[in-house]
């Protein structure tokens, strides 16, 4: 069983994406052998008021509740974002939050982000921080396309070590402060498989080092589909230095423990 913690539906204004509707994404992921995914609405990244996009997401993935888990996009610079969080969690059934500090205009280790993380901690919701959406080197002139600094994310993790914080679509994790700040090894931070390599140039260990030294404790399966080829993450999964138990942890058990998999999966896992 494979669950993707990093997928999307919707339109990106700077490039045409394939397989970006719930139906298309379901088919694409199933073709790749991925049974489900945590998704958020792409348009919310660039909207000032993210909540209409959150509501559209909840409605569009409702028929796919055995496949998709909706993730709320929260913009903490916007008036009454706390209401959005409450509605997304309590009324729309969202299981986590995604933050976009470079698009919504705040510091990921600053007071606004910390208020969101504290609120998520109270609600038991994991927080995802996509490191980047697209490669900066191809940026459209209207897209800031800046990566969220991994050192600043490490600072946020240090402030909230018990709150699950998932950094997606980043590379060089093992060279970043998230890994090098050894006092964070017991904190609840995670990276995903979407952009980082197992071994860069076959020489420098990235995901390989994290798995060798911490098993599946800090790694979750994620694809960044439909922006990226999901099969890239599958090849990484297939070449991780992981035993069967660790691979299950990375592939879905870690996500399940964080409450990110569909509710029906818990039943399946329980009966397995």
């Amino acid at each position: 069983m494979i669950f993707d913690i990093n997928a999307w539906v919707g339109s990106w204004p700077f490039r045409s994406l394939r397989d970006s509707t719930p139906q298309q994404l379901t088919e694409r992921l199933r073709k790749a052998g991925v049974a489900g995914a945590a998704v958020s609405q792409i348009e919310a990244i660039l909207h000032r008021n993210a909540q209409p996009a959150n509501e559209r997401l909840a409605e569009s993935v409702e028929p796919y509740r055995d496949v998709f888990v909706p993730m709320a996009t929260i913009n903490p610079t916007y008036a009454r974002w706390e209401d959005d969080l409450r509605i997304c969690h309590e009324e729309l059934g969202m299981k986590g939050v995604r933050l976009f500090p470079e698009y919504h205009g705040y510091e990921i280790d600053g007071p606004l982000a910390k208020r969101v993380v504290a609120a998520c901690r109270e609600r038991g919701l994991p927080v995802q921080i996509p490191h980047r959406i697209e490669d900066m080197r191809q940026r459209h002139h209207l897209d800031p396309a800046r990566g969220v600094p991994l050192a600043a994310i490490a600072g946020l993790v240090a402030a909230y070590p018990d709150t699950p914080i998932i950094v997606t679509n980043a590379r060089g994790i093992a060279q970043s402060p998230l890994w090098r700040r050894t006092e964070l090894r017991d904190a609840a931070w995670y990276a995903d498989t979407s952009l980082a390599e197992v071994y860069f140039q076959g020489l420098d260990k990235d995901l390989a080092l994290i798995v060798e030294e911490s098993g599946g404790r800090h790694l979750l399966f994620g694809t960044h589909a439909p922006f990226s080829y999901p099969e890239a993450a599958l090849v990484k999964r297939a070449t991780l230095p992981a035993d069967a138990d660790t691979l299950e942890e990375i592939s879905y058990r870690g996500a399940m423990r964080l409450g990110l998999t569909p509710e029906s999966w818990a039943v399946k896992a329980g009966s397995a």
């Binding site: 390599e197 197992v198 860069f200 999901p230 890239a232 993450a233 599958l234």
Partner: peptide, 14 residues
Amino acid sequence: DGTMAGCVGKVIGA
């Protein structure tokens, strides 16, 4: 160019 698994994956997935 060093992105080994990723580049194998993109051709497999195309």
